[in-house]
Write a protein that binds this DNA or RNA. Sequence first.
DNA 1: AGGTTCGAGTTTTTT
DNA 2: ACTCGAACCT
Length: 779
Amino acid sequence: MIDPQTSHPPAPTEPTPLTGPTPRRSTRPGRADPLLDDLTTPQRQAVTHVDGPLLVLAGPGSGKTRVITRRVAHLVTRVGIPPWQVLAITFTNKAAGEMHQRTAELVSERQGRALSVCTFHSLCARLLRQYADRLGLPPGYSIYDTADQKRAIKQALSDLEINTKNFPPGGVLSSISNSKNELIDAAAYQELAGDFYSRTVAKIYAKYTQILTRNHALDFDDLLLKVVQLFREHPDVLKQLQDRYQYVMIDEYQDTNHAQFMIANALANRHKNFCATGDPDQSIYGWRGANIKNILDFEAHYPNATVVRLEQNYRSTKRILALADNLIRNNSRRKHKDLWTDNPQGDRVQAVTTRDERHEANWVVDEFRRLHDQRGTAWGRMAVFYRINSLSRVMEDALRDAGIPYQIARGTAFYERAEIKNAVAYLRCVVNPADEVSLLRIINTPTRGISDKTIKAMRAYSVANNVPIDSLLGDPLKLTAINSRAQTALAKFGKRMDTWRHAAGFGEDETVVVDEPVAAMSLRGFVEDLLRQSGLEDACRNDKSDPDHERLANLGELVSSAQQFEHDFELELELDGTDHTPSLSEKLLAFLERISLVSDVDAVDPDQGAVTLMTLHAAKGLEYPVVAMIGVEDGLLPHERANADKHELEEERRLCFVGVTRAMRKLYLTHARYRTVFGQSNATIPSRFFQEMPQDCLEEIDALDDDTDGLADSLSQRSLPGREAALYPPGTLVRHPQFGLGRVIEIHPTGSHTRARIAFNTAGTKTLILQYARLERIE
DNA sequence: AGGTTCGAGTTTTTT
DNA sequence: ACTCGAACCT
């Protein structure tokens, strides 16, 4: 597969075999090289940089991915660096996959496979499995997502008898998470805690850590934290890794947090071949602990660093770029770049005022339909961005009603469904018996006679005697507080779990050798059996609240995804050349790890031929010819929670900048006069960011009088746009009920509508749709 | 034991 | 408006 954007074929003269001539440490400048031919001077400078620290400050659409992939290919095929010495870290799994593929196209198949391209979290998960024994980690540890974390926090709160009112789990969790990212553990947090709130959080933090340890579980932050710990406590491991990964590249460096900074630095510290790419203006994860100073202070950390600025934009029109540039100039905490482009001027960016969120969604849908029907723009080339997920709903409804294909970038949504979470919890329990959060989730799901009372008794016993809760399944007689019927139910369930565990190849004691027929079982088969034997499948089949058996279908989908994963995983190992057939237990471990680390954008398929809906955060790194940003209102963008803090406001501005710069040709920024929140309609104010955009790049569209709710659509179909236009030639003096007197500047029919640009005396210049604007001709 | 109803909290963004 | 948990009912 060749990227259509790559205008040249991936040089057939390659590859240079691994066993080729002695590595050359320089390239010959005069000779044509397909890796360098079509690059600009700064791009080439970045690509041909070999040793020593390098910072690439890449503006939006400046060909950053191309530079990274070319640089890897250059290192491998021109300089002669063994591909397995190259480590490239990206922000999402999808980005990793794409980068891996695009790089692999430039080198030999064999070399491509030997490259390491992954995210920080997947790298860490892998290292922790590999070096589990060094840290005393159980190899089957669970990775807790936010929902699991909240349950653990709630458990901590109830163990400590702390009121969830004053200490909301979410808030406590984010305090803990921020601390972890700063490498502050529970003990250090306690030291720093001054006020009552922090002192209490310190207690919860300690308890939470204890619960996770007891459950053999790590949260997302722990993945990073434990690797930092691994490097600190085991210098030999670090040295081994430093020598293996001599060339370290980190993309989206502006979004790395302190822990990630420590990991990257530790890895690159020995050889100093550290290439960071990113753009401080696109740093949008500060709330998650990302430290923009990592990129701003790069040169201070590496005084001899080479810095390359990529300022030419290949993506957007002049107007879109100028609008973005003007906006971002309002930030103070940045490294200025002179963004420019050779692309055409393009249309003005349309700033659209609509009545409410339904009207807004319908306006976007109508406009997209017009572009599709009249200009032949494919659905897959259009996208809608919003600040918060809840805005997707109206948009979805409108697209569905209009019969337009769409996809939502919510890769994790599937795994958040209750039936899927249950199934996954079973799998986790099989792999990790100590995982109490997962166990409690499924112990009576579907119901099997284990009541809340029984569960309470189990927890009480487990806490009082400091024994793992799962041990009670094998020995329920210890629980004197419950009746014999409950004890039997527990024992039966314990037996069931043991059978699965054995089938999966996880013996209770390490000496158990897996039987032959068991080892031959597939991951798919195992998941299927588990769904059937656990009763999950029957529960879904008999679920009366789900007549379409959607849940059952989802379970089927999980089986398919297990099968798909199994196939990919085996293929991967096979291609790796390692002569090793993975056992069921290995496959299961890897499958669970994958499930835990999927991200929202991972599900976006650009070739699906559907309009794509996503949050501004998920949009980073993507581009679309047509983009509509909805809900561009104060309180939403910038978000109200960011209003107070100057830094947070700057982050909101960067978020807006990211959204704007995704657009290649057409951009719409819409806001609604009234928006319904919690079922209550509230008046809104257009985003203050509008005032920071250059007016000559904007076109204000007033859609307040449009009828895009479908009622008058049939009427407007009948009107003749051409004739209407003739009635209002440019120069005509008109009166608008709201805007007063104005003069028509230009007028043109567009499909069923006629648009008129009118300069009003007091209300400024607006573009109105003639059929809806109740205009009056003044003679 | 299991289902139902009622009330509270929810919505910022995510690996 | 919608989801989740706790109390309450069968």
